[in-house]
């Protein structure tokens, strides 16, 4: 693209935005609002997911073995299940030692007639389906009992899933809203200039030559909205983060810097993409001359 042509496009795009000043402003405002809502959900979603991960890290499934069970075979069997990250064998002797150390009971079990069972500790992978996993483990030979932080993990997983579903639907919905706003705003400029477009087509301008100014307009609307959104969200998140740290320091939060970087990129990219798609839609009809 020639420099002169590029300037022409930029000039035309800014003219369009200025001519529809109030509409452009309203569009930026509404798109920003939508993106902020989207961003908040993204932040909440991420924190829930993060929390759930941490919970999984901490929580483990404990499998108590029968006296006659073969721990080596069982470990390899369990490792084969999906959702198992790692297994660790804790022998009855280790168990007794642990008790001894932590409870201060001396030399009662570290003998031949130790009543403690052997145990296998399972660390869960992120995508673990705890219920299914427990069921599968129970079908193995030599299992005495399976123990896990049942209700807590399950509740956590359900919440994460709900948040995801709501988040994705919201994403789709807000995406459509933003597209609609951009397409409509651009459509106004397009209609204001349909005569110009018709003449351009008749004197032999290429479709892309006609399209570019409108594309730039859409991109500009998306870009400005998303930059404003990014600023608002990052300020907001840092602020909330500090607040939560003060009143409830035990709640783990995703590191602000990392999340905001991601968020800014996602928001800006979607702003631009929405801008492009929105404007392409709104001029399509008018190019058939």
């Amino acid at each position: 693209m020639k420099l002169k042509t590029f300037w022409y496009f930029t000039k035309e795009a800014s003219l369009g935005l200025i001519r529809n000043g109030i509409m452009s402003f309203t569009a930026v405002f509404t798109i920003t609002l939508s993106l902020v809502i989207l961003g908040c959900f993204y932040i909440v979603m991420n924190n829930f997911a993060y929390f759930a991960d941490l919970a999984k890290e901490v929580l483990e499934i404990r499998v108590y073995l029968k006296e006659e069970a073969d721990p080596i075979t069982l470990q390899t069997e369990i490792l084969k299940f999906s959702g198992v990250k790692d297994v660790k064998f804790v022998s009855k002797l280790d168990g007794a030692k642990w008790l001894e150390k932590n409870l201060g009971i001396k030399e009662i079990f570290v003998t031949e007639d130790n009543p403690l069972p052997d145990m296998i500790n399972i660390k869960l992978a992120e995508d673990a389906k705890v219920k299914n996993l427990v069921r599968s483990i129970n079908t193995l030979e030599g299992i005495e009992e399976v123990e896990y932080g049942k209700t807590f993990i399950e509740a956590m997983l359900v919440i994460v899933r709900i948040v995801w579903i709501v988040g994705i639907s919201l994403l789709a919905l807000i995406g459509l809203v933003v597209l609609y706003i951009i397409a409509n705003t651009i459509k106004l400029t397009v209609i204001a200039r349909r005569k110009e477009i018709e003449i351009m087509k008749l004197v032999g301008a290429t479709d892309w030559f006609i399209r570019w100014p409108f594309l730039l307009e859409g991109i500009f609307l998306g870009l400005v909205s998303s930059v404003v959104t990014a600023v608002i969200l990052s300020k907001f998140y840092v602020f909330i983060g500090q607040y939560i740290k003060q009143i409830a320091p035990f709640i783990p939060l995703v590191n602000a810097g990392e999340l905001i970087n991601q968020l800014v990129m996602i928001v800006i990219a979607s702003g631009i993409i929405f801008g492009i798609i929105g404007s392409v839609f709104s001029i399509k009809k008018f190019l058939r001359v």
Partner: peptide, 11 residues
């Protein structure tokens, strides 16, 4: 000039 501009004629 418009007719020339849109076919990317030089200044």
């Amino acid at each position: 000039a418009f007719a020339l501009e849109v076919i990317e004629a030089t200044k």
